[in-house]
């Protein structure tokens, strides 16, 4: 199978959906000629024109409002939010309008829009361009949240998101745009809410989102060499969450570590760990552990920034403790 970059996979997904459905259009900052700072959208304006690939002023609340209105009146906008950190600027349009319109209109209105944005630290972009804020939107009922872990997931999830009749926020890891993965030529969709078991194991379940899936897989390799069999699962979307697959694995292995690049406190790791504790409690042989980003503003200093995100070594170290039956936080 051919291998393409995550960037190209997203580009293909958008182009295919725009060809299939002329209600689909893109708007955001630097999306047309510039093709975004990460060049993800390069070439789309040449094919679809400036009427469907719309450069906006630097005014996130404004163009997000435009997108919500367009979605309510029959279009299927894809809003490009250049950095995930800028989500704070569109919170009202996204959380108070897009997320609630279907409910508050008694089902008469749908808001079929996609917000595509990014997450991920260690790009030396400092505290305001390095955050992973997916937990903020996952908290709001009415919003779906997808987190592709490779080019294959990025394309399949984007196509499903565009076809979804409700608002979906997709977080791409900005460090993975040039990562290649096998992606079929033929069309495929990945449904939201379907986790993938990437590696089967029997001793400990490693649940990773986005780029943390790679981290978990590398940890599993290290652990396998030591005789610890780790299962690696990628939820692929955190809303809806494929709880059944995660629970089945936790019941099987009796141990789990949840790894995510959002801040650890009040984050995605806490939510997933909590569900495992509630629903697989009597199958657990150790506490479910969380590994999120450190609860600090992401440092600009490369040496410090690298310390704030989970690494394969850290995941493996925690997995060893769990499997050895060491007392964790027992005092």
């Amino acid at each position: 199978m051919r291998e393409i970059t995550l960037s190209a996979a997203v580009n293909e997904a958008l182009a295919e959906e725009m060809r299939r459905d002329d209600r689909v259009f893109i708007l955001g900052e630097d999306v047309a000629e510039a093709g975004t700072p990460f060049k993800v959208l390069s070439g789309l304006v040449e094919e679809f024109g400036t009427a469907r690939v719309i450069d906006t002023p630097i005014a996130e609340p404004g163009f997000m409002g435009v997108a919500v209105g367009a979605a309510m009146t029959g279009m299927r906008p894809v809003v490009d939010v250049m950095f995930g950190d800028f989500l704070f600027l569109i919170m009202d349009q996204l959380c108070n309008q897009a997320a609630k319109t279907h409910y508050m209109s008694g089902g008469k209105l749908n808001v079929p829009l996609v917000v595509r944005t990014n997450l991920g630290a260690t790009r030396r972009s400092a505290a305001q361009h390095s955050q992973s804020l997916h937990a903020l939107v996952a908290h709001i009922p009415g919003l779906k949240v997808a987190m592709p872990s490779s080019a294959y997931e990025a394309k399949g999830l984007m196509k499903s998101a565009i076809r979804d009749d409700n608002p979906v926020v997709i977080f791409e890891d900005k460090l993975m745009y040039q990562d290649k993965a096998p992606v079929p030529e033929e069309e495929y969709l990945i449904p939201l809410g379907e986790a993938q078991v990437l590696r089967e194991g029997s001793d400990v379940t490693l649940i990773g989102t986005s780029s943390m899936v790679q981290v978990c897989q590398q940890a599993a390799e290290v652990l396998a060499a030591e005789g610890i069999s780790a299962e690696v699962i990628d939820p692929r979307s955190i809303v809806p969450l494929d709880e059944a697959t995660l629970l089945a694995s936790a019941r099987k292995t009796s141990r789990a570590i949840v790894v995510d690049e959002g801040h650890q406190s009040f984050g995605v790791t806490a939510e997933i760990a909590s569900r495992l504790n509630e629903k697989a409690f009597y199958h657990l042989d150790a506490p479910v552990l969380r590994l999120g980003a450190m609860d600090v503003p992401v440092p600009f200093s490369p040496a410090l920034e690298d310390l704030t995100v989970p690494t394969p070594d850290l995941v493996a170290e925690k997995a060893r403790l769990l499997c050895a039956g060491e007392l964790i936080h027992a005092a």
Binding site: S254, Y282, D285, L327
Partner: peptide, 20 residues
């Protein structure tokens, strides 16, 4: 060694699965 706390307030520490 990690200092074990075998009995806390009369309870023997055990994992939920072990208890079950």
């Amino acid at each position: 060694r990690p200092r074990a706390a075998p009995v806390v307030d009369g309870r023997i520490l055990a994992s939920p699965k072990a208890r079950r």
